[in-house]
Amino acid sequence: MSEGAIDRVDAVALGARPLRYYDFFMAAFVAILLLSNLIGAAKLSTLGGFTFGAGILFFPLGYVLGDVLTEVYGYARARRCVWAGFAAMLFMALMSWVVVALPPAIGWPDQSAYEAVFGATWRIVFASVTAFWAGEFANSFVLSKMKLLTEGRHLWMRTIGSTIVGQGADSLIFYPLAFYGVWSNGQVLTVMVTNWALKVGWEAVLTPVTYAVVGFVKRREGLDIYDHGTNFTPFRASL
């Protein structure tokens, strides 16, 4: 196959064909996921009258990477990345709890600040990992099914449509689970809807970037995977 030629492949026929960039996308996906939960989830900001979680600045990049993974490599390989991210989040939460719980050295003055930054409650952790799991699988499933229905046309429709569903599931699960009874009902609803709208807006703004990355990776990999015959259950990590 010549450089830049794209081979349309069914997912079940891919076999053990080597993939140049898949591992790098998985690593980037997990890194962005951990960063968004580590430094962005706990802070609320207000700009222009909109209240939003600071993680929105880069968390949607995880959905862009999820779109690229599903579009180029298929649902099954995107599913492996979701499970890798899920396991990494649980490990991060466990180690954060262990490190925060360690007794501070005598005279060390920063324990309270450390607890404020890294001492997320198990309610927040549970809400975060549950919302991520449901939202990412919804995003990947919808994008993959829409690719089959559109026969690979209208990438913008697939990426934005899948984000509407995936981010909707994420926001609908995370904010009530994390903050119901802590914030007022009105604040929960406002932040939930605002963040969902902003995340979908981010996806729309980044559509040209998604097109460029998808096109580049498809040409370099020389393939374009369609999920004919794929088992779409989320409850497995094997291909």
Rank of each mutant, 00 (worst) to 15 (best):
D170L: 08
A113C: 15
G49C: 14
K43S: 10
L34P: 00
A178K: 07
V205C: 02
F25R: 08
H228N: 06
G55L: 07
Y22I: 11
A197R: 09
G222S: 01
T46Y: 12
Q187R: 13
N139G: 06
A178R: 05
K199I: 06
L38C: 11
L149Q: 02
D110G: 15
V72A: 01
A237T: 06
L19E: 12
L33A: 02
F216G: 14
S238Q: 14
A87N: 04
G15N: 03
F91Y: 12
F137L: 01
V129Y: 15
F126A: 13
A178F: 03
V72P: 00
G186R: 11
D10G: 05
L65Q: 06
R158V: 04
G186H: 13
G85C: 11
W156N: 09
S144E: 02
D23Y: 12
E3N: 10
A93K: 00
T233W: 15
T163F: 09
L38A: 14
A204N: 04
L206C: 14
N185Y: 12
G74L: 12
F91R: 07
L61N: 10
G201V: 00
A134T: 11
A134E: 11
D224L: 01
Y22G: 08
F86I: 03
S112P: 05
W183N: 08
V9W: 05
M95I: 11
G222M: 04
A134W: 12
W183E: 06
D23N: 10
I164Q: 08
W83L: 03
R158A: 08
E136N: 01
V12W: 08
A16V: 05
G15C: 06
S96M: 07
I160M: 05
I160W: 07
V193E: 07
V165M: 10
G229M: 05
F235D: 14
Y226I: 00
G53Q: 14
P234Y: 12
L172A: 08
T130H: 08
L47V: 10
G48Y: 00
L239M: 10
A28R: 03
A105P: 09
T159C: 03
F126P: 01
I173L: 11
R153I: 04
L143P: 05
T163Q: 07
L206Q: 12
T130Y: 10
T121F: 10
A78D: 04
F52W: 04
F137E: 03
E3L: 10
V100H: 11
G201H: 01
M157H: 01
W202N: 05
G74M: 14
R79H: 09
M92I: 00
G53I: 04
V200S: 02
R17E: 13
G49R: 13
F174K: 01
G85H: 10
V99Y: 15
A88F: 06
F50L: 14
I225Y: 01
V217M: 00
R219L: 13
V191E: 13
S144H: 09
L143E: 04
